[in-house]
Design a protein around this nucleic acid. Sequence first.
DNA 1: CAGCATCCTCGTGGATACTG
DNA 2: CAGTATCCACGAGGATGCTG
Lengths: 138, 138
Amino acid sequence: MRLADGPVRLQPMPPGADAMLIAKCPVRDVLDRIGDKWSVLILKNLEEGPRRFGVLKRMIGDISQRMLTQTLRDLQRDGLIQRTVYPTVPPSVDYRLTKLGQSLMDPLEYLVQWSDRNHQKVRKARQSFDRTPPGAPA
Amino acid sequence: MRLADGPVRLQPMPPGADAMLIAKCPVRDVLDRIGDKWSVLILKNLEEGPRRFGVLKRMIGDISQRMLTQTLRDLQRDGLIQRTVYPTVPPSVDYRLTKLGQSLMDPLEYLVQWSDRNHQKVRKARQSFDRTPPGAPA
DNA sequence: CAGCATCCTCGTGGATACTG
DNA sequence: CAGTATCCACGAGGATGCTG
């Protein structure tokens, strides 16, 4: 796979050039987007169809107005969702997945499935680790 | 990425929205892990086999010692990688994927594939968005 | 209704120095 | 070699008030 634009570095690089290594990694474009706190939640909510701003806010519940606006904007910027403004009074706006956004839901679904099947194991590993820290007495 | 680790209920929600709660969404466990800056890069490097600390550091190049140590410990805590200490002098430690960790690579691979195929579209959408901001003159 | 503007907290992660 | 320990900059994200 391509984590970098070229082969993974075997030797240290001058600082700054290495930052580009990650910056150019395609999967980081995705992870930086869906890795944030709200993107996946919003995407999931839009999977069933167009949703208005207020509806999204109520559905998610514990998202601030600020973060909803900002995340929606970022998703739109990346071409994953489309924003439609209806010139009514008061204004109405809805959001929906673009084709690109819909296509992202497929790989995302695999991740969700893995999570559903394995989150218990992760939680158990976590508890076990916390009970018996690395520096534990023999 | 600040994800809630406990129950989060600020206001009453419509029925059905409860499933969207962050605290109850297993995929958050995964995104919280792989969504950080280094986890995927490390996991990818471990895909081919056990790697020692110093090797990982050189392979990745621009990761600080602190973040490599910390991310490795978090991955270990979640049961995704195994840490093996060889009591040599000087000490030698290697890391490898657990079965759980390996199984995560599959859904991750779909994400990587999607990224490789679509990151150009994302970048273009981004550029287009930045050239023509939402509040652009009619 | 669907935002924008502002202030502020706190977690992530970088830099550096030290050690068994 | 494989870490710890500290300090610190930055930005994500929460709270609140205002607006077209």
